[in-house]
């Protein structure tokens, strides 16, 4: 248990009558990237959406169980504080279209308040650098975020999430809407990021999981089938189900 940043115990989640996540227990170590793989509809997105309590903002969505961040239950805390500590990057880039590039990154800081102008400036630059976007946008910080390419927009979203200094970063198929070159850049980025913040990434792309993740969990029909160091999971799966999935027999 010790050394685990985030611990999930007996998590269940529903969409209306659909039991999307069924009794999953899983822990995430600090400074590691964990990939969650599985066929579409296996509940992997719903699973990570429960970790920062964004699942419950959807109508008819419900969840039960425990999620412990540094030992204290996320579901007992103020959700706004939890979402600030557990950042999230979504499937499609969702920049704020009416804000500038700078404004997007600073948005979270301004909400939480308590930062001076200089502190905000520093954090914005730092986050853009971490997201490997700084060199491309440093000349046009006050321009609309909409004029960036899709890949740049997604890195801007990563910078926006990093700016509030999260303790965990969730990524929900962050590259699924991008071209191969942008995807490669995002993957490099994740590889670097995990040294400062644990990353939990949902992906349906097994190669991607193999490239970026230290550990991989395989979900099927809402249940956790297997979790292991990435190499072990792909080379020596202990479960029959995992083996048939990674060898492409279904999914």
């Amino acid at each position: 248990m010790s050394g685990d940043k985030l611990v999930v115990q007996n998590l269940n989640a529903w969409y209306g009558k659909t039991h999307a996540v069924q009794d999953i227990s899983l822990s995430f170590p600090d400074k590691k990237a964990t990939a969650i793989i599985g066929p579409s509809g296996c509940g992997k997105s719903t699973f990570i959406r429960c970790l920062n309590r964004i699942h419950e903002t959807q109508p008819k969505a419900r969840s039960e169980g425990k999620v412990l961040l540094d030992g204290s239950d996320v579901y007992q805390a103020d959700p706004t504080e939890i979402r600030r500590k557990i950042g999230m990057v979504f499937q499609r880039p969702n920049v704020f279209p009416t804000m500038s590039i700078y404004g997007n990154v600073a948005a979270g800081l301004k909400l939480h308040g308590g930062y001076s102008h200089d502190e905000i400036d520093t954090l914005v630059i730092e986050s853009l650098k971490k997201a490997a976007l700084w060199d491309e946008v440093k000349e046009k910080l006050d321009q609309s975020a909409l004029q960036l390419s899709g890949g740049q927009q997604q890195r801007l979203c990563i910078a926006r999430a990093l700016a509030v200094q999260p303790e965990v970063l969730l990524m929900d198929e962050p590259a699924s809407a991008l071209d191969p070159i942008s995807t490669a850049r995002i993957e490099d980025l994740i590889f670097d990021l995990k040294n400062s913040v644990p990353v939990i990434i949902v992906t349906h792309n097994m190669q991607q999981a193999a490239r970026v993740a230290d550990r991989t969990a395989f979900l099927y029909l809402g249940k956790l089938v297997e979790v292991a160091p990435t190499r072990d999971l792909f080379e020596r799966p202990t479960e029959k189900l995992t083996e048939s999935y990674i060898t492409g027999r279904f999914g």
């Binding site: 964004i54 903002t57 600030r84 950042g87 999230m88 979504f90 909400l111 979203c157 999430a161 509030v164």
Partner: peptide, 15 residues
């Protein structure tokens, strides 16, 4: 407005 806009704000810790 797409849901992703609402979620973007919520995920930053917005009320």
């Amino acid at each position: 407005t797409p849901d992703s806009q609402r979620e973007a704000a919520l995920s930053l810790g917005a009320t």
